[in-house]
């Protein structure tokens, strides 16, 4: 055993390495006039980050949402307060798939049908929303921190078996911002494709090679109202590409993921 001095020494050594790296980095400041995203790399554009860890679940997303952003409010309203359709029966409309992990799993089972079976090992929200303080955009500082993080949507993680092949998967759905576009987790990968669908949704797909013989297939669909659907399957036990290799390839192809994401049974 040692004491905290060893940890402090480790921090100081890492600081020294950081300073050396910083000295090598070009400053690369953006121009004073701010064309949209002029500073950022291609993959920095979306407000929706490509999924961050939320409490207890190794999948999800983080949104940075200005509270007075009309686009954001419209998106959330569109997803949450649309009046129910007029009906002559007393049957209530089914809850949205992202209402809870249980509903999401149930709906996924219906969408998957005979294609495969799955076991859920983790559940949680679909996204954490960090909200910036409301304007004004100028003047004195407002608050010390942004508003508390809010969690929205649902996610499930587990293993999935299709045609005798088993691998890890994760699946998330949450109401995001209307107008956001889907992107691959690794947009620079040659396998990444992004396209618009006739209904106004955007669809991103990709296949990522992992260490060893690991492969992860990904699909991301963002509907016009901002509803986000994301899914990954891997031939490793974890959809993040870690854990033991369970098969030679993921249990579902990218094309099958697209069929699942665009199913009208959600």
């Amino acid at each position: 055993m040692t004491d905290l001095r060893a940890l402090n020494d480790a921090f100081e050594e890492l600081e020294r390495r950081a300073d050396a790296a910083t000295a090598r980095m070009p400053l690369g400041l953006p121009p004073r006039t701010r064309p949209a995203a002029s500073w950022s790399r291609t993959r920095l554009v979306p407000i929706t980050l490509a999924a961050a860890v939320v409490a207890g679940v190794a999948t999800g997303a983080v949104l940075l949402v200005p509270t007075n952003d009309p686009g954001s409010q419209t998106g959330l309203l569109a997803a949450s307060s649309t009046p129910p359709p007029v009906t002559t029966t007393s049957t209530p409309p089914p809850p949205p798939a992202h209402e809870s992990p249980e509903v999401l799993a149930e709906r996924f089972r219906a969408v998957l049908g005979d294609l495969g079976t799955f076991v859920v090992t983790e559940t949680g929200p679909g996204a954490s929303v960090m909200t910036l303080p409301a304007g004004p955009l100028t003047g004195a500082p407002t608050t010390l921190d942004p508003e508390p993080t809010k969690q929205v949507g649902s996610s499930i993680v587990g293993t999935l078996t299709a045609t005798g092949v088993t691998g890890g998967f994760d699946l998330l759905m949450y109401p995001g911002r209307a107008g956001d576009k889907a992107q691959c987790a690794l947009p620079d990968e040659p396998s990444c494709t992004v396209r618009d669908l006739p209904d106004g949704s955007t669809l991103a797909t990709g296949q990522f090679g992992l260490e060893g013989s690991g492969v992860t297939n990904e699909v991301k669909l963002i509907r016009p109202d901002g509803l986000v659907f994301g899914m990954h399957v891997s031939n490793r036990q974890s959809p993040k590409g870690s854990g033991p290799v369970l098969a030679g390839h993921p249990p579902l192809t990218v094309e099958q993921l697209v069929a699942i994401a665009t199913s009208d049974r959600w």
Partner: peptide, 24 residues
Amino acid sequence: VMAEPHAYVRRMVVNEYLSWRRRL
């Protein structure tokens, strides 16, 4: 305009580090 912009940006760093894209 936040009182502690650096605290917020540091939080963004933590979130980015924990994000699944980084966990590949």
